[in-house]
Design a protein around this nucleic acid. Structure first.
Lengths: 111, 111
DNA sequence: TCCATATTTCCAATAATATGGAAATGAACG
DNA sequence: CGTTCATTTCCATATTATTGGAAATATGGA
């Protein structure tokens, strides 16, 4: 991964609304969510939401898919994995690894 | 983790020089690196480097430690883990997890 | 105490980003 | 082919970040 790509992706995430959008989409998995649903969930003006979606899409962090009259956006897990990998690259100077394993979806625990 | 914290940390990383500094420190492990060494490695003016180090430190991504006449900065792996975890939180809508396991320090392979 | 070296602060010019209302565009379906 | 609903573009304004030279500060050692 190019450093400039990572900078663009981090900049895309470094904004309250865009971070919320991205996290929401990560939680939705591959299915993603229609723009209108995102607007509902986060309460953003049309123009503002569209601007932020475009920024995230241009950075490669989310992808658009037409679905009937709707456009579904979903997180690009490939891009996300590449970015997380880039941050962790060659870490820890040979010491035991200090970066936690992927925290998502552990085998379910009952509360 | 608060969303505002994550935004600040992502903004801190969303800059070419700061990203380079952070990745360099991640690679150095807990030992870290003196400011002068970072300057050597990245070729930054004193004022510029100091500004970026302060930004990263304020965001909580790196920590300073006095070592003789030098100040060593090191990556905060706790902060890094919290940030990566925040991005991945509740991911994937119950589908099989799409986020790659931590890529660092796999059991060594000989080339 | 005083020196030498390491690091930070001060400064002000330049450049980039976030915002939402209203209008325009796009897509599907009868 | 026109209607309807979903989404994007246009616009102007206000806020915020980045830069390096020079001077100031901090530290340890003699």
């Amino acid at each position: 991964m190019e450093s400039i790509t990572a900078v663009n992706q981090l900049a895309a995430l470094a904004q309250e609304h865009r971070l919320a959008i991205f996290r929401l989409l990560v939680q939705q998995g591959q299915e993603g969510l229609a723009v209108g649903r995102i607007a509902e969930a986060l309460g953003l003006a049309n123009a503002t939401l569209s601007f932020h979606l475009k920024t995230l899409a241009t950075a490669g962090l989310i992808e658009a898919r037409q679905d009937g009259r709707f456009i579904h956006y979903s997180a690009s897990f490939d891009a996300m994995n590449a970015l997380l990998g880039f941050l962790s690259e060659n870490c820890c100077a040979g010491e035991p690894c200090l970066i936690a394993p992927a925290p998502c979806c552990p085998p379910e625990k009952k509360p």
